[in-house]
């Protein structure tokens, strides 16, 4: 009897340790990211880092503003495309799709979510960049817009699947109430269903936004990678993540440049954490309200 309890307690102890692993890992990541990154601020002020327009590692000048602006532009561009498309597709799947179409579109979305980002990048490098060059009469198609387009495709699955869950859980009686008053499908969708599901839809958009901010591989191949302040979607640029990827190879370990690149990583890290918590809060609230 005592032996059995001993065994059970040992296993319980091990499993408890395992269950804290996610937390521990998160903590280690924070420690190492900040330990390396924050060293930069012994040399450069936070303001100079965030708002400085010049990034010249050879002279130890680290202003991340152009990267920040590129990241914002790329993300906004991606959302501009994927939010209307994603919500429409979610509405389609839940509200009007015949079964055969649903059985085609759902796996397609799962597959889109599963394609590695590097493949999106290579596809965009050759197709999207080329498609953009001619109509906009550009010297190179490697632009913020190209990155936005490929990111939009990449975040569609997140936006669709979360919006879809949320639209799906709008009680049927709301729809019936609307139909019973002579509303058309579209009136019911646009005036009752989507507004009732808005929390979940916003949560999906927020998560998609986080993914776009953090994406690296697809962006680095198509954005052109020039360290100047982009003025429009048709300029080339360089995002926080692509800068890290491109420059880490040249940075000497422990140098200021190395620290500065970690600092670049802290920005999307913090933003994405906040966004993730925000969206899970929105989703849990929605659930509790319908229960």
């Amino acid at each position: 009897m005592g032996k059995r309890l001993n065994l059970e307690n040992t296993i319980r102890g091990i499993l408890l340790l395992f269950s804290t692993a996610a937390l521990v890992i998160l903590a280690i990541i924070v420690v190492f990211l900040f330990k390396e990154g924050l060293m930069l601020f012994q040399h450069t002020s936070v303001t100079d880092f965030l708002f400085g327009h010049k990034w010249i590692p050879a002279e130890n000048i680290y202003g991340a503003f152009p990267f920040i602006v590129s990241t914002i532009l790329v993300t906004l561009g991606a959302l501009l495309i994927s939010v209307p498309l994603g919500i429409s597709c979610a509405v389609f799947l839940v509200e009007i799709s015949p079964r055969w179409a649903r059985e085609l579109v759902r796996p397609a979305i799962e597959l889109l979510a599963g394609i590695p980002s590097i493949i999106y990048g290579v596809f965009a490098l050759i197709i999207v960049v080329d498609v953009l060059r001619v109509p906009f009469n550009l010297a190179t198609g490697e632009t913020i817009l190209a990155a936005s387009i490929i990111l939009a495709i990449m975040i569609l699955p997140i936006i669709i699947s979360i919006s879809q869950d949320s639209i799906d859980s709008v009680p049927r009686i709301y729809r019936e109430g609307s139909y019973a008053m002579g509303a058309t499908d579209w009136q019911t969708i646009s005036k009752v269903v989507v507004p009732s599901a808005r929390r979940g839809i916003i949560a999906g958009v927020i998560l998609g936004c986080g993914r776009a901010i953090g994406e690296t591989m697809a962006v680095v191949l198509v954005i052109g990678n020039v360290e100047k302040l982009p003025l429009s979607l048709l300029d080339s640029g360089e995002t926080l993540t692509s800068a890290i990827l491109l420059e880490m190879g040249e940075a000497v370990i422990g140098s200021l440049h190395y620290n500065a690149l970690f600092c670049l990583g802290i920005i999307p890290f913090l933003i994405v954490l906040v966004l993730s918590m925000l969206s899970s809060r929105l989703i849990t609230k929605r659930v509790s309200r319908f229960e």
Partner: peptide
Amino acid sequence: AADSLNAIPSIVFGLF
């Protein structure tokens, strides 16, 4: 923690 870990950009994992 698991959700946060899941959301962390992959390049940040690279740095880490």
